[in-house]
């Protein structure tokens, strides 16, 4: 691998990790609201957070472009233009992979016996403490599996990324974009090598994901 390829790999991993890190607290909060608090309007939130899974990623990219642009609401809030930077690529990857993370977290949290949480409340723990000392520890395998699935999705993000972050070598060109460019310039050898890296990354992550889920969840007391 050339140094350029290594920097592409590092950039891709950075985008994936940052996207996943952004998703974790949000996914925990949303699944707590939907599964444990059972808030009003839960169905609407559910549809909204799952939407990126159902629409073409380029749609997400376009909406993000509008929101993050200098004139967009988020752009004005941030006071700077992050469009066509790796941060925008991470944001795009986060949004597209969020449904996978939040859905896994919801399933894992729904599997935690409500009476364990009720026990903890009667033992003096407030709702937030119950969440972090009972719910999350008992659901962590499912949550972690969801994070891995989200991570692997973030690594392969293409449509939203190219729309909002462009395809700038050394700046926003992640692995899928580099593969695309290689194909465009008919460098099949390089495309093949990058595809190999891409498959290896995905295989490693998916193996870890399956290992996490295969380990039987502990018996509830």
């Amino acid at each position: 691998m050339s140094t350029a390829d290594i920097s592409i790999l590092l950039l891709t991993l950075r985008v994936g990790l940052v996207a996943t890190a952004m998703n974790l607290p949000l996914a925990l909060a949303v699944s707590w609201l939907l599964v444990k608090k059972r808030v009003r309007g839960g169905t609407l939130i559910d549809v909204l957070v799952s939407m990126p899974l159902a629409v073409p990623p380029v749609t997400v990219g376009f909406l993000l472009l509008l929101a993050l642009g200098r004139e967009g609401p988020l752009g004005r809030l941030l006071g700077m233009d992050i469009v066509f930077t790796w941060v925008a690529a991470a944001a795009a990857a986060a949004i597209v992979s969020f449904p996978l993370v939040v859905r896994a977290a919801m399933v894992a949290m729904a599997g935690v016996d409500e009476r364990l949480e009720m026990s903890a409340r009667s033992l003096g723990a407030g709702p937030l403490r119950v969440f972090f000392t009972v719910t999350v520890p008992l659901a962590y395998r499912g949550i972690l599996a969801g994070l891995l699935l989200g991570f692997v999705r973030a690594l392969s993000e293409f449509g939203a990324t190219i729309t909002v972050a462009g395809n700038i070598p050394g700046k926003t060109q992640t692995l899928p974009l580099a593969i695309y460019t290689s194909i465009q310039v008919r460098d099949d050898f390089r495309a093949g090598a990058l595809v190999g890296v891409s498959i290896a990354l995905a295989a490693a992550t998916l193996l870890a994901h399956n290992w996490l889920l295969r380990r039987a969840p502990r018996e509830s007391g």
Binding site: L116, S119, R121, S122, V134, L138, E219, S220, G221
Partner: peptide, 20 residues
């Protein structure tokens, strides 16, 4: 008053021990 403020011990039918 929320349960954590009532200071009532509660023993569930099947114990509901924390498995972790």
């Amino acid at each position: 008053a929320p349960p954590e403020r009532r200071r009532f011990g509660y023993v569930f039918q099947d114990a509901a021990l924390f498995p972790h």
